[in-house]
């Protein structure tokens, strides 16, 4: 390795460490400021909570085990609705692509349903499906499914027509054009769509839990605010932050695995 190259690498490394340091500084600085403000009564800790109160609440709930219940319910509902969106989103997009007239007929309906604020549907879904996890999952699915179908379908139809012509010159049938050209060409769109969806699922699950749950982080937030247990609310929000970060990282890993297969 040349002197210049190693110098370049060293500078690169320095820069990365600096970025990480500043990030950590912001995080701890914010937490410290919050704690001090609460201790010195600049803000009302009863309403705004504080890092130490959040930690205490968390430890209490850890001791009686109830936190696991809330986290696992929210996480489970999110993952389940994510998988449902993945399967149905790709499945419906494939069906539309394979059947041109069907897509011509249905496209405006998807556009309307996609632009509808989905939280408007949630109360109705809960009346139909009952006060249970089923209603919450359907709510979460409804938040992302229409956009997913539109997005993936648009990517399918955007496949280079010259490449489709090539497949036909090689004697490929429609299903082969799909598996060997259209799907792999759209894999990037599908994955970046799924990265957005994991966040949308969490949004949908929390909306559902606000309206129809007896456990889960969404329930904890809405119940906490009703009985003025703001520590519960703040803690749930912090856990949600961590959870969404974790889920996003997970999709990142899946992306890398999928890319290696293709």
């Amino acid at each position: 390795m040349s002197e210049e190259q190693s110098q370049f690498l060293r500078r690169q490394k320095c820069y990365k460490t600096a970025v990480t340091l500043v990030r950590a500084l912001i995080f701890f600085g914010f937490a410290a400021l919050w704690e001090i403000a609460a201790q010195l009564d600049w803000i009302n800790a009863f309403i705004f909570s504080s890092p130490s109160r959040i930690a205490r609440t968390f430890l209490d709930m850890l001791n009686d085990g109830s936190i696991f219940n809330h986290i696992s319910i929210t996480l489970g509902e999110t993952l389940l609705s994510f998988v449902l969106i993945l399967v149905f989103g790709i499945g419906i997009a494939l069906m539309l692509w394979l059947c041109g007239p069907l897509s011509d007929v249905l496209e405006p309906y998807f556009v309307i349903l996609n632009s509808l604020p989905k939280s408007a549907l949630a109360p109705m879904l809960i009346v139909w499906l009952g006060n249970n996890a089923k209603a919450i999952i359907v709510t979460a699915v409804s938040v992302a499914i229409f956009g997913t179908v539109l997005n993936i379908y648009t990517s399918f139809t955007g496949t280079d027509p010259d490449k489709i012509k090539l497949m036909r010159t090689l004697g490929a049938r429609r299903l082969q054009i799909l598996t060997k050209l259209v799907l792999p060409a759209s894999i990037n769109t599908i994955i970046s769509n799924m990265k957005v969806n994991i966040g949308l699922c969490l949004v949908g699950v929390i909306i559902g839990e606000f309206l129809a749950a007896k456990s889960g982080l969404g329930y904890l937030i809405i119940y906490g605010s009703q009985v003025f247990k703001m520590d519960w609310v703040a803690m749930s929000i912090v856990i949600l932050c961590l959870m969404s970060m974790l889920l996003f990282k997970l999709t990142d890993i899946v992306q890398r695995l999928v890319m290696r297969i293709f």
């Binding site: 010159t169 490929a172 060997k180 060409a185």
Partner: peptide, 25 residues
Amino acid sequence: YMLQRDNLFEWRSVYRNVLLGLETQ
């Protein structure tokens, strides 16, 4: 039929591109 553009698929290696026709048939 060799088209004007080579239309090689970027997600396949050169070898797997060359095999595309044999695969489909």
